[in-house]
Amino acid sequence: MRKAVLLARREIVEQYSDRGAGFRAVFFVALPIALIFLNRGTGGRGPDTILLIFALQAALLPTATAINSAAGSFAAEKEAQTLVPLLAAPIADIDIVAGKLIAVLVPAAALAIISLAAYYGASSVIFGHERIARLLTPTTLFGLFALAIFFIMTVGAWVMVVSARVGSQRTAQQIAGFVLGGMIVALSAIGSLIQSLAAEIVIGVVVAVLVSDLVALDLARRFWNREEAVARL
């Protein structure tokens, strides 16, 4: 596990030393706040579920940054040929996969927290602190955050499976784009469902994502191995 953390730390530093990654992070944190400003009339007059949908967006949109990181995880290393020295080191396959997953998960999770906090602050200002405090209880906020984590793990694991098997970062990013598209569709669907059955749907989605996580991680473990990666270099 020590080597997984070492690998993850290097990946995070590498990812975020790119200016583009910083802009992407700021964009995905700012987007939900911009949305509540743009819809403050609807949010102010409408039911609480609209504010819940905005909160869900605030939790899940920053996870989009994870898709790009996951897409680059193996494909970018293959392209730069840096995977060979890494695979030549005495580090277990599971440490490599875990390290890359941590590198995808930690920054996106941190962004989800920042985004939720920013949303909470901004919506308190616009819609009143009392209403937001009643709506976004610590349990709800934790639930939204947990949902974001499961979502990142699912998307990260699936995109990493793809990234390990394609030859270029560009291809991996294109596939990640489809995943992002699917994510937007899923967000919209979740949003519309929450309007009718808020709590049950959130719990149902969490369970579904959790199951999907387990499947994806198991597949990532089965599909990705050193031999496969080297043979494709």
Binding site: K3, L6, R10, E14, L83, A88, A89
Partner: peptide
């Protein structure tokens, strides 16, 4: 084993010191 390939294959955003320290720890 120490392996050197035709391409240096370095993490180019790292300094030489951090790069070598990173691999030393992996080993």
């Amino acid at each position: 084993c120490g392996l050197v390939t035709d391409s240096p294959a370095l993490y180019e955003r790292m300094s030489l010191r951090s790069y070598l320290t990173y691999f030393a720890r992996l080993y």
